[in-house]
């Protein structure tokens, strides 16, 4: 039990990821305003990306741009480039899905005159 606590506090990045992820998910489930739900979704997306990028960090390493192109490269001196590439794709795709969600919000507001989930459900009946 104590070991588990120590393990969590030795990894503050992971703790931050868990807090923001769960809070964003909770907002998505419980709030009624559609824009608020999208804010929660955006927090979830960026927290997962934050977790992946913090895996790629190495102590004492620099950014993954080669300092010298003639000498042989030691991988320990550079941060891991692979999570960076994967998260670049994920950020852009995440903002694209966010844009579709916001366009849906605008279309719903144009038809029902409200962004509140329960108002919309009453008007649908």
């Amino acid at each position: 039990m104590v070991e588990a606590f120590v393990a969590v506090f030795q990894r503050p990045n992971f703790l931050t990821f868990v807090i923001i992820f769960l809070w964003g998910f909770y907002i998505m489930v419980t709030r009624f305003n559609l824009v608020k739900k999208l804010i929660g979704m955006y927090l979830m997306q960026t927290s997962v990306i934050f977790f992946l990028v913090s895996i790629s960090a190495k102590k004492g390493a620099t950014i993954p741009v080669l300092l010298s192109t003639t000498e042989p490269v030691k991988a320990v001196n550079y941060a891991n480039p692979l999570p960076h590439v994967l998260t670049l794709t994920a950020i852009v795709v995440g903002v694209a899905t966010l844009g579709v969600g916001l366009a849906l919000c605008a279309a719903i507001y144009r038809k029902y005159g409200s962004l509140d989930e329960q108002d919309i459900l009453e008007k649908l009946k």
Partner: peptide, 27 residues
């Protein structure tokens, strides 16, 4: 949070994510 103790240390150069293919890319 229970899964935290199975994760590699922050900034560990020998974490599983950094040993398989990324050294090949870098080198």
């Amino acid at each position: 949070l229970y899964a935290a103790k199975d994760l590699p240390e922050f900034g560990d150069p020998n974490s599983p994510a950094s040993v398989h293919i990324s050294p090949i890319y870098l080198e």
